[in-house]
Every structure is written in structure tokens, then in C-alpha cells.
Amino acid sequence: MSMQEGDTAMEQTRPMNLVGGIAATAARARERRAGSVQLTGPKIVAEHFNFYYGAFQALADISLEFPALQVVGIIGPSGCGKSTLLRAINRMHDRTPGARGEGRLTLDGQEIYAAATDPIQIRRRVGMVFQRPNPFASSIYANVAYGLRLNGVRSRQQLDERVEHALRRAALWDEVKDRLHRDSGTALSGGQQQRLCIARAIATEPEVLLMDEPCSALDPIATLKIEELIDQLRAQFTIVMVTHNMQQAARVSDMTVFMLMDEKTRAGRVIEVAATAQLFTSPGDARTEAYISGRFG
């Protein structure tokens, strides 16, 4: 990404009070991560991608590149298609009757919606964390081991190691190590449940992590912990995160996508894609500016 210098220049020429705190947040976050963000090629690419629920077009002409090992935030008002786009990436719509994707959407060059593509194989490479923590009603250990067992890991020792590793990386190990087999995953607090779900998703070492408003059901302290966690996970995973919270997008994402519902067709469109600091300091589109400065949405 070569927008860094232009970015800074824009910051100086633009009045800071336009988007105020968010721009500052994004700038601080960028400085904090300066040097740690790697320049990488695209992991997921959408080219003129459309998505339909039956006759209704939910996404129109989406063209995007999600760079590998970076955090991409998707923001936009309710109904703009953020979640639809996110869930399209690992074919979570397959159970919805009439849902279908058209155009190109690729993971490492592989067509996600090609007839020959096995959605199960895609989902094993693309993990997902949902809006509401959804642990299984089994033990904490069984929750994390679920994906491993599904993939055929049977050795007790190997399971133990990988469950511990995943829980450590999800910053949950110390809180649950004494009750792995005794407590149900549903017995944990909301924030712990969400970290358990993250541990469950990363235990199988996927390449991509999709997060659908992962903090919207959590309190501020639990939210902070998840954000710190995302900051560490970016080293190994390509992360795509939908969020309602612009401050959060400014804090954690390297790149931000702003989406909006088309007023006539009601289909979701991408309005602007930019490095996070740039999008929040000098949005290129008037609608982006209106949204991030709180004039609608």
C-alpha cells in the first residue's frame, strides 16, 4: 500500500474537526502498527460480484481485493449488504433457499461459487466468528476440539496441544484451564464465549477469519479484549470484519470498505475502499464523509 505519504498530506490540509475523533483514532492506530503491516498480495478477490436472494438482488457489482494478512473492516448502515458480502465469502448462504452468487469471487484464485468447488472445503479454509457468541452446549474443551475432530484429529495428545494453543492465542487459556472438561461453553460470560468462539475458529488454522460484528453483543471491556486479540491475530490470518462501530473500524482495521444500499434497487454497493486512516481523514466520496461524520446511518 503506497498511500501513506498522500495520507499525511491530506491530514494536514483537511480540517480535523470534520470527522474529529475517528480520524485521530485511525491515525493513532496506523502509527501504532507502522512497520508491522506487511505488503501482501490479494487473498480474496471479488470482480463484478452480484448476490441474490431469489429475485431480490442484495449485492450489486462488488469489486474488491482483500489483501492477505491484513484486517479489512466493512462499515455501512443497516441493510447495506455488509453481512451478506461477508457470509458470501464462505458460502454461509447455502442453506438459504434461493440464495445465489454470480460473477467472480475467488479465494487464492479459486472460484468460491464454481460448481466444482466444495463449500465444506472453503469453510475449512475460511473460519467464521458470529455476531452473537454461539458456543456449543458441550464442554469448553469439546468446543475448541470440534473443528479438529471434524478434520480427523484423533490423538489425545495432539488434541490437547492444539486446544491449549488455540485457547492461549484467544487469550482465554488462563481463565478456563482449570475447568476445560467440567464447564459447558455456555457457562462462560459473553466476552469469554466470544473468545471461545474465536479459539474454536482458529484451532483448525484457517487462512481467513470472517468476523460478523464480533463485539456488538459485548460490553466495552470485553470489546477491548477482542480488539487486542484481533491485533495479534493479524500476523497469521487474513481478517475481514463487519462492524457497526466506526470507532472500532478505525482502531483495528488496516483497510476499510464503506458500503451503502442503492436507493432505487435496494442492492448493496461498495462506495469506497481505502486505507483506514485515509478513509476516515479524507474520504473520497461525499456519502462516505456524510456517514462517518454522523449525518446519516
Binding site: R123, G127, M128, A137, T204
Partner: peptide, 15 residues
């Protein structure tokens, strides 16, 4: 059974 629980397993690649 909440759909979210099915989605969790589905998202891990379970048939």
C-alpha cells in the same frame, strides 16, 4: 435449536 448453533458448525466446515 437456534440457527446460530448450526451456523457455528457449518462455519467450521461440518456437513
Amino acid at each position: 435449536v437456534p440457527q446460530t448453533v448450526r451456523e457455528a458448525a457449518m462455519g467450521l466446515g461440518a456437513p
